[in-house]
């Protein structure tokens, strides 16, 4: 079964992860721009990071046959940082026009401050202007209220609900989002957030319409294999293969296809890998013979 991993921070992962994911059927990944674990102090570091997402990281994924896409945005945590927030917002339009950029994200709320809300609203406007969907990070603390605030801000923006993915949901938030018309995202983690067993219960109770699962794997304790692992758990629980395929392949494609820059046909073949080629003079081979890798 093919898998579209719709939220993973490969910038922070190693080539073994790409290899394992490819072997498990991951044909494409989407990498939202995010928080690197340490504050950035000037806008130039965002420029380099964004260029990496559309450049080196896409190249790296291709070497393992995986199509790499991304979303661009100012993450909520750094939205609070006046050293960078306004300048990053000004930077975004040029990136939001790039072919491999399928949405605005991850944007949203973290501490749920007024500043975060202002930058969330501003970036929803960018999503409207560039005809893109929005991937919205929801808070890990006071989550239910955070969801409610995100929903309220989205409604104020008038961005169509079907172009909104409210991510990092759980058993409580699905009750808020199910009837809104937006998409509900669930991040499956080894020990925190959702786990595969809880996800099975949610999918069994609520179905998989407008539902997306991801690993959100990053620089922390996380597992890029969580989508394939969850797919196995769903099958063992008796969920049909068609519904599982909808959850891990059809749904994320349908959501990001709203950008007008993605079709399922584009993913029919693995990404073109050429181990002899380099990106900016750099390869993933670290001196190894391309014919033996």
């Amino acid at each position: 079964m093919l898998i579209f991993e719709p939220h993973i921070h490969m910038f922070s992962r190693i080539t073994d992860d790409y290899e394992r994911m490819a072997l498990a059927g991951v044909r494409a990944v989407l990498e939202p721009a995010f928080w690197l674990g340490q504050p950035r102090t000037h806008v130039g570091t965002f420029v380099d990071y964004f260029d990496t997402l559309v450049g080196w990281e896409r190249f790296r994924a291709q070497q393992f046959g995986i199509h790499h896409f991304c979303t661009m945005g100012l993450n909520p945590r750094e939205a609070n940082d006046d050293r960078v927030n306004a300048d990053v917002l000004a930077l975004l339009p040029r990136y939001l026009e790039k072919d491999g950029v399928l949405g605005v994200g991850e944007i949203g709320l973290d501490d749920q401050t007024a500043t975060e809300e202002r930058f969330l609203a501003a970036q929803l406007e960018l999503a409207k202007k560039h005809g893109l969907p929005a991937l919205i990070h929801t808070p890990h603390r006071d989550k239910k209220r955070g969801f409610e605030r995100c929903i309220a801000i989205v409604k104020e923006s008038s961005l169509p609900m079907e172009r909104v993915l409210l991510d990092h949901g759980n058993e409580e938030t699905i009750k808020l989002t199910r009837d809104l018309g937006c998409w509900s995202g669930f991040s499956i983690y080894p020990h925190t957030k959702m786990d595969p067993a809880r996800m099975v219960a949610i999918a069994t109770e609520h179905g998989v319409e407008r539902m997306i699962i991801n690993s959100a794997a990053d620089w922390g304790v996380s597992d890029p294999m969580m989508v394939p692992r969850t797919a196995v758990k769903l099958e063992q629980a008796g969920v049909s293969r068609a519904r599982i395929e909808q959850l891990v392949w059809k749904n994320p494609i349908a959501f990001f296809a709203q950008s007008g820059r993605l079709t399922e046909a584009m993913l029919q073949q693995p990404a073109r890998a050429n181990l002899r080629e380099t990106f900016d003079g750099n390869s993933v081979l670290r001196g190894q013979d391309p014919d033996k890798v």
């Binding site: 260029d51 450049g55 896409r58 190249f59 790039k98 072919d99 491999g100 990106f279």
Partner: peptide
């Protein structure tokens, strides 16, 4: 060129 992706 500098800020473009491979195709750009």
């Amino acid at each position: 060129y500098a800020h473009g992706d491979i195709d750009e």
